[in-house]
Design a protein around this nucleic acid. Structure first.
Lengths: 203, 203, 203, 203
DNA sequence: AATGAATGAGAATTCATTCAT
DNA sequence: CATGAATGAATTCTCATTCAT
């Protein structure tokens, strides 16, 4: 009873190997030998290689989705420009945190989702649309409230998302020594200016 | 002089199938049957499945690389803000054009490059670094000339690249009916404002 | 004294599943899950999957064998044709009964014994020879006593056996609603006439 | 071109091994090593182990079915008892021939069709029903014409079929040295008498 | 006796690549 | 150059059996 040790160690190994070699190139034999169990043991816990991948992603997806919705709702909240700026900072910081806490899986999902021929494209693209919609909604609200100006809210959302996702992964995965506080500061500044934010706005 | 018909038809088929199924999922037999030649014929022209992929990408990479260098060099050229704006527009438009002309291969390289476990990660990441360096150089120059302001040139470059690449692929591949002129306009505006461009600048 | 409950429940489950899926396709895990015990428990009672099958068959075989010998010995007993006819009826009825009482196992053994590649072929073919010998012996005796006439006793025995076994299984398994009394009547009539039985015989 | 040598040798090997070990116990590796080709070669010709089995059976089934229909139609043809007897002989001889010519496959299909858990049960049982129907039809016709007497035509057909199939397989496969002409003679005699055939019949 | 996690040999199938014609 | 049959290494997944608790 309560023997998820084997299962956990399979999951940990799987994450590690998936990240190194990608889903397709990862062999079940790689996972089990990394986990130090027999080939058959794998199939006591997962029906297939795909299933363990889904199981790995699902936690992350649920969490990210929930937090993203939660945070993004308040992206441009505030009655004065100062409050709004503070809020944007807060949201960006929170999203940084989510990614940071789940960096490995985030990368995994990102790569497999973008990568061709994947069964995971659909998962990833589902998330992507959701995020874009949420962002667009906030951008539109802010446009209506009159303190940001951009010709097309949807285009703006794609800019925000691309800028955010790409740089996060770049600075968290490739250029790892980056000062995240600075990144946040520069990002918020860039975004707000890009959106022609009215820094003197008062409700 | 013109490549033999057979080789071209293999390349065309390969591009089509790679794009549909991705590199890993594409079988040499898919390519040859699409091209209407025998299995063995493939190996008269390409040493391996990988080689045809590289050959497909190389043209695109060479071209993109050359044009990117060429164009980017003039990103912020100009003695007045009007001239600079015009130039940025020009560069963005040219890059749009390159992507547009090579959309299929661009997507291919993008997906395989991002996708995990690729032999193509290295190709893609090489390009990425090159582009980031080139952009950073221009951004730095513009900062020094005093008409844009951003705390960190490298971070800014990553923003520019992420924003540009992500939205291009989004609007060219997923939301295909987008008005590209509008996209260009909104993008240039967003970028320049995001970079605190001095719209009244005069050399 | 009574077998332990667990063993019996394993045997019952095994019979059910073997009949549904056949020996090869039945997994030990099917049996144990049907019986509601753990995988390991199976091996406290049976050394292997094969062993439980043998054990299931053995009871039936012993019984059938014993009764078959017992009955067949008296197949054509009797001093008048009436007595002989009555006896043949009795034997046929008894054999019907044995099959009827053990229909599931009879089918199991029949199918696995006929079916190729079986370890059970040998068991089944052993039974088959025994039966054929016993029948032949009786047929020969009857020929010698002069009230049936057939050119070759062995061939006749195979006819009797084929006719009997095939129709029993057909009418008990496939066309289940058949009137068994009628079947008996028609069968005895067919057999005796086929064997040129002398209906006016008197010792 | 015209290289069915490999395919034929695979089929021959498959028949041999299937017969020895049965479908389930036969490994594709057994077949290819018997045929002297590589494992992969098998899959150039057959999609699966099941497919080669079906392909093997189909020829036989088609042939048997066609001839069985053809022959059985004339089972009790004739205007005098002599003619009818001659015809029955002819039909039995023809069916013997069909089985004899395809003995290996006939056995294969018989065993796999009877055997439990098979995908081939359905094929076999389809054939069985067809045959039973055809025989029954003839028996009924003969009853109506008044020269055979049996209480139930269906039961009689099952007797005929069981007797025929079982003894053929017994004497062709197990007791191989049997005199087939004698078998035919004894069988026709047994059948006709069993059916209370009127040996003095005239239309 | 009962448990059920762990085992690992073995099976089917795929597919890039070779090579004789 | 073109062909396409042959190859066989590699991979996923199954399941009877074992054994420590």
């Amino acid at each position: 009873m309560g023997e998820p040790r084997t299962k956990n160690s399979l999951i940990e190994s799987a994450i590690r190997i998936f990240q190194q070699k990608g889903f397709q190139m990862t062999r079940v034999s790689d996972i089990v030998s990394d986990a130090g169990v027999a080939q058959g043991t794998f199939y006591n816990y997962f029906r297939s290689k795909e299933e363990i991948f889904r199981e790995i992603c699902n936690d992350f997806i649920d969490q990210v989705q929930k937090k993203f919705i939660e945070r993004t709702e308040h992206l441009f909240d505030g009655d004065t420009s100062d409050e709004v700026v503070k809020n944007v900072h807060q949201v960006v910081r929170d999203l940084f945190q989510i990614y940071h806490d789940n960096l490995t899986v985030a990368e995994l999902l990102f790569r497999e989702g973008i990568g061709n021929g994947g069964i995971f494209k659909e998962i990833y693209e589902g998330l992507l649309s959701l995020f874009l919609e949420l962002i667009e909604e906030q951008v539109e609200k802010a446009i209506n409230r009159g303190f940001i100006h951009i010709e097309d809210a949807q285009i703006g959302s794609v800019f925000l998302f691309g800028l955010f996702e790409r740089s996060l992964l770049y600075f968290m995965l490739i250029q790892k020594n980056t000062d995240l506080e600075k990144l946040e500061r520069v990002m918020v500044d860039f975004i707000l200016k890009g959106l022609s934010f009215d820094y003197n706005f008062k409700a």
